[in-house]
Amino acid sequence: MSFLKSKFHHPRLARNELGLTHRDYEGSLSTLCAGCGHDAVGAALVQAVFELSIPAHKIAKLSGIGCSSKAPTYFLDQSHGFNTVHGRMPSVASGASMANRSLKYIGMSGDGDTASIGLGQFAHVVRRRLDMTYIVANNGVYGLTKGQMAATAERGSTTKKDNKVLWPDIDLVTMALELGATFVARSFSGDKEQMVPLLKAAICHEGFAFIDIISPCVTFNNHATSTRSYDYVRDHIQEGLIADFVPVTSEITTSYDEGESNDICLHDGSVIRLHKGSNGFDARDRLSSLDAIHKHRENGEILTGLLYCDPTYRDMHDILNTTETPLNSLNENELCPGARTLNGINNAFR
């Protein structure tokens, strides 16, 4: 069941440029387990969209099947949502975007949905450079079917039922980088401060933005021998580049010492401001990112933060040369060549 939340709120809640509070961006009451990382991802998304002042109805949220794919019900109530079939959200999102390029598309998926049954669709949606934000709430385990290991679980770790993970894991972040994603980040559902600016930047990025969010499963993968538990992730996380998101309309007030920060200007004029962490690498250089990810991995560390961004690349619609007018708004006048033209075509077959 999904339950509607009370719309009652404190009269002095902060309002955004549209005069809306963050409560206006919430969804139904979550039915996920208490403490599930996915709810934190949803909350970060609510805050990000609220702060960006994007009208929720100009966003479409799509998902596949799994705990993570249920999550879109619990945020952005005024957005149309589509719970599709297991592992096939990318194709439905592609078609939706082809039909109307003027909306923002947020895909919510999980490790099973993306790294196993949907790996092919994931690879091709990256390659297609679809203008969307693709979030994987990654907990390394199958929740709805009660605790089977996922393809993102590390070899050697064990499930709650003490089954050893026998196969090497798939790292979706390096895959996305190899396949040409133009925005790649990794985050942790326990770190809202990191998630919100990353989500804002991903949503404003015109092109395929991928965020892998480690989002522990409190019910099936939070035990001592798991490498996706809250404790394990907290102990092994390494924040690479600290990213601030500076929206297009904001005055830039904070100043940083020269050489300490780097700006990446997005299409809409907003800016990702990067501060060098101790593990500095160049987020505009794909190879440098891949190298940093691999090195941390060898040390048993999980590198998080913005990993790569290239705001200059053309997206799917640019490549297809699609008209700016949403295709779903075209009618007979633009689409039907008419009887006279058909007569000419008939003659070509005589």
Partner: peptide
């Protein structure tokens, strides 16, 4: 999937 996504979105 592409056809369904587009149909859902009105094309």
């Amino acid at each position: 999937g592409i056809a369904i996504g587009a149909g859902w979105n009105g094309a």
